[in-house]
């Protein structure tokens, strides 16, 4: 059974038809990437999965349950964690406080141990644990946003453009961490404009254009695809 399944999802912003029948599947343990240009509907797809938007037609099934019954705030405890575009760290809280917020809905006693695990994943965050999140660099904030999302022990991690605005070196570091997170057992849905990098680490990929899935295949096959090479990879 797929961990996440979108079936013929349509969504509107007012009169604008943003998603025109998007169907996609994410299997347990995969990294799936959703690539596409500006305005293709990538973020809208994520917002729909997170119940921040309701599909007018179609359904979002997570671990066999229809998500349309859930409030956005209930999804964290249901096992979905989202790292929003532009990172969205709590700028005026310290690094540690941000991580604690990630575990806000949890009541168990292993939170401190999990914070240590996040510090092991991102040693940089341990150094900066008492610093205000807003005063850190973009890369550090991205690490923090990911660490915070992991604090909710998600089954499915949604990443919205983690490479945005980061130096190439940092992008590589972030992507290799995504692979680490995935190896530790978290399924990842990665939304990216940076098709080259995301196809590098993903198992499978979907290509979204003006609200429609135009291609879906193995990541390796997509990298070889002529249209992808031309439009997204810039290879003539």
């Amino acid at each position: 059974m797929s961990i996440l399944e979108l079936d013929n999802v349509h969504a509107y912003y007012g009169k604008i038809h943003a998603l025109k029948g998007v169907s996609l599947r994410v299997e347990q343990g995969e990294i799936v990437t959703l690539i596409g240009g500006n305005g293709a509907g990538k973020t809208t797809t994520l917002r729909t999965i997170c119940a921040l938007m309701r599909p007018t037609v179609g359904s979002v099934i997570f671990e066999g349950e229809d998500l349309s019954r859930y409030k956005p705030s209930a999804l964290a405890s249901r096992g979905i964690a989202m790292v929003p575009e532009g990172r969205g760290v709590f700028a005026k809280m310290t690094v540690l406080e941000n991580l604690e917020m990630g575990a806000f809905h949890r009541k168990d006693k292993e939170i401190d141990a999990d914070i240590e695990r996040i510090y092991d994943l991102f040693p940089r965050l341990r150094e900066r644990r008492t610093q205000l999140a807003g005063t850190m660099s973009g890369g550090e904030q991205q690490m923090l946003a990911m660490g915070r999302a992991m604090m909710s022990r998600p089954h499915l991690l949604l990443l919205d453009e983690p490479s945005m605005g980061l130096a190439p070196v940092l992008v590589e570091a972030i992507f290799s961490t995504i692979v680490d997170i995935n190896k530790q057992g978290t399924t990842v849905l990665l939304v990216e404009q940076n098709a080259l990098m995301s196809l590098e680490i993903a198992n499978r990929g979907y290509v979204l254009q003006t609200g429609e899935i135009v291609l879906s295949d193995d990541a390796r096959a997509l990298k070889q695809n002529e249209m992808i090479q031309k439009v997204y990879l810039g290879i003539e």
């Binding site: 997170c50 921040l52 409030k71 956005p72 705030s73 209930a74 999804l75 964290a76 405890s77 964690a81 989202m82 929003p84 969205g88 760290v89 709590f90 700028a91 005026k92 809280m93 406080e97 604690e100 917020m101 990630g102 806000f104 809905h105 915070r148 909710s152």
Partner: peptide
Amino acid sequence: GRAGRRWMALREDEDVAEAMGIHL
């Protein structure tokens, strides 16, 4: 307490607070 943290989070960013499981 927890209420204070909840308020602090939603004061900063309502969407992210919601994603953390805070009922706005």
